[in-house]
């Protein structure tokens, strides 16, 4: 399939590329310049550029939106909300039947869920709250839902949260990995984050109950806070890394930094 990836130079993009590049034709786009390690087709493009996204999506089979912007108010709306609008306008214009959206789990299961409940699952009604990142992503998701409803576009949304390096289970937090501490009960290794995108791109439509389906992306974790059953059952996603080093007291020796994304 021909796949347009938006926001592909971020943290998740390279791992999605790794999972997809030998199986599909990829046009990678990002607001930033091409990563020096990436050798495939590339277009510098802001996801908020509606006309540009429409143009880039011509002749594509699938659009994958991995763009993210958190702290700046204007940019967050431009990227997280308007970016999804651009993606859906492009899908409608070109008759693209499937888009893959991404975001944080709390764009749906916001703080009012997380602070109170367990067994949170991706089919709950969204309640993002007003925190900028969650809110803007939730608005983007709502745009996707409406377009899906009205135009029959298949929207598969992958919700992530805490990504970990597979070799030492460190994340984006400073100070290196922490072992034998409480962990975020929604943690996933980067390579598995990428294979989830592959699973979403390739899942047969017949396996999807509706045209707008959302999935929590994380391996089996013992906390019972969130539920990952759906992604395993529907997408057949099998995480390779169980991040058990974070939730049991086995010790892992961190190796050198390794960047195997591309």
């Amino acid at each position: 399939m021909k796949i347009l990836i938006l926001g592909g130079n971020g943290m998740l993009g390279p791992w999605a590329v790794r999972a997809l590049k030998d199986r599909h034709e990829i046009l990678l786009t990002d607001i930033n310049e091409r990563h020096p390690d990436y050798q495939g087709d590339y277009l510098q493009l802001s996801v908020a550029d509606v006309d540009g996204v429409v143009e880039a999506a011509k002749d594509m089979d699938v659009i994958v939106n991995l763009s993210v912007l958190r702290p700046h108010r204007q940019d967050a709306f431009d990227v997280n909300t308007m970016g999804n609008y651009a993606m859906m306008v492009a899908a409608r214009k070109h008759g693209i039947k499937r888009v893959i959206n991404s975001g944080p789990h709390y764009q749906m299961a916001g703080q009012q869920y997380e602070d109170w409940d367990f067994d949170l699952n991706p089919d709950m009604p969204p309640a993002a709250g007003t925190r900028l990142y969650a809110h803007t992503k939730a608005l983007g998701q709502e745009v996707c839902r409406v377009f899906s409803q009205r135009h029959g576009i298949q929207v598969i949304t992958l919700l992530y949260y805490n990504m970990k390096h597979s070799w030492d289970l460190s994340g984006m937090e400073p100070g290196g990995p922490q072992y034998h501490q409480d962990m975020v009960p929604y943690s996933t290794a980067w390579p598995d984050c990428g294979t989830a995108v592959q699973a979403a791109v390739e899942v047969p439509e017949s396996r999807l109950a509706t045209r707008c389906e959302t999935f929590f992306v994380f391996p089996d974790l013992p906390h019972g806070k969130f539920n990952n059953e759906k992604i395993k059952r529907v997408l057949g996603w099998k995480p390779r890394y169980q991040v058990e080093g974070l939730w049991n007291k086995d010790f892992r020796t961190p190796p050198d930094n390794l960047h195997g994304a591309f």
Binding site: M88, T130, H135, V146, Q149
Partner: peptide, 25 residues
């Protein structure tokens, strides 16, 4: 059941979504 074609109506829907989250919080 908002329209995706008519942005005036889609916009009205999006405004409601924004408002609801402020009320929810």
């Amino acid at each position: 059941d908002p329209s995706a074609e008519d942005v005036a109506i889609l916009g009205a829907h999006m405004t409601e979504v924004v408002c609801k989250e402020f009320a929810r919080d």
